[in-house]
């Protein structure tokens, strides 16, 4: 888990959305830089539920902008990258890719066989110890357990018959059929384009106007995540959302923007209803006394709670 990916990390831009496919990058950004994103993919281990989701990780534009500004990530157009990369993948690269997958597939097959044999051995030893513990009925049950063992092995053999659906799977000297593997990331096949030396201001990922507040909250150690489901712009967590509940429902308001009191009451009411504070933030521009053009900007935030008096 502590593996550090090579920096900067390439972030895939697919149809205007930012995605991450490398698990090391996902874990690293979460651990070191408080960037969590949202997992949107189906977990192959448990494909029929929505509580736990897997790769890819969708990043908010704000998160990508922050990473790019810090020099931790850069954006690649993934459709283009695949188009070019596949067309230009050298023979060596392709051989390496297939070999890599085959190794993984064999490992998976071995581990599965191992797990099966382990559980089988466990079951057998259990049955044996049971039989030993009950010596009076041992004679009677002995034949029976022998029989079940026999059928078990027969089933095991049929499970690993030499039925290979594709020519890709090689017939190894081992009796194990190599499994097919679908990798999560194309990194082993494609060489991602090198990161640009420096981002021009214009080529930075476009972000909504609430970005200053996002950055402010993030720099103060909070974990902002998308919050429309709770009626706000960001859910603000005090720590990793894996372990902590969120504290605030945050919405951005322009500094001179007029606020409808109903929005404040509604937001406060909503936040209190889910045991959170409603937070609004804006950018205050302070004019410098020496130079009128040069001003300082700072983000100020306010929290609103429903008081019971």
């Amino acid at each position: 888990m502590d593996a550090n990916p090579d920096l900067p990390i390439p972030v895939s831009l697919i149809a205007g959305r930012y995605l991450l496919f490398a698990v090391d990058a996902v874990t690293y950004l979460r651990r070191e830089h408080h960037i969590c994103g949202v997992t949107i993919g189906t977990l192959p281990q448990a494909p029929q539920q929505n509580v736990f989701l897997g790769l890819p990780l969708e990043l908010m534009p704000e998160e990508v902008r922050l990473l790019v500004e810090k020099g931790l990530a850069y954006v690649i157009d993934d459709a283009m990258a695949h188009q070019h990369g596949l067309a230009n993948a050298s023979a060596r690269k392709r051989v390496h890719y297939v070999k890599h997958l085959r190794d993984k597939g064999r490992q998976a097959a071995i581990s599965q066989t191992g797990a099966k044999e382990h559980s089988r051995a466990l079951a057998l030893s259990k049955a044996r110890s049971k039989a030993l513990k009950a010596p009076t009925i041992r004679a009677a049950s002995h034949d029976e357990s022998e029989d079940t063992n026999l059928t078990d092995t027969a089933e095991q053999d049929s499970l690993f018959g030499p039925s290979t659906p594709s020519g890709l799977a090689s017939s190894d000297s081992l009796s194990i059929t190599t499994f097919g593997v679908t990798p999560a990331s194309s990194a082993s096949l494609l060489t991602p384009p090198p990161p640009p030396p420096a981002y021009a201001e214009a080529s930075l990922p476009a972000v909504p106007e609430s970005y200053p507040m996002f950055k402010h909250l993030h720099s103060n150690g909070y974990f902002p995540s998308p919050g429309l489901r709770f009626g706000c712009q960001y859910m603000v967590y005090p720590g990793d959302p894996l372990r902590f509940h969120s504290h605030f429902l945050a919405s951005y308001v322009g500094w001179h923007q007029e606020l409808d009191l109903m929005d404040l009451v509604g937001g406060g009411r909503l936040g209190t209803g889910v045991k959170k504070g409603y937070l609004i933030g804006g950018v205050e521009k302070k004019k410098n006394q020496d130079n009128a053009d040069m001003g300082t900007e700072r983000v100020r935030t306010f929290s609103i709670e429903w008081a019971s008096m």
Partner: peptide, 26 residues
């Protein structure tokens, strides 16, 4: 390379990333 059995482009398995990049569009 003397890789006579280099797999053809079309035989390569598509990765999840490749699938996203290929199937998702604007």
């Amino acid at each position: 390379d003397d890789d006579d059995d280099a797999p053809a482009f079309s035989d390569l398995p598509m990765s999840l990333q490749g699938a996203y990049a290929t199937f998702i569009s604007d």
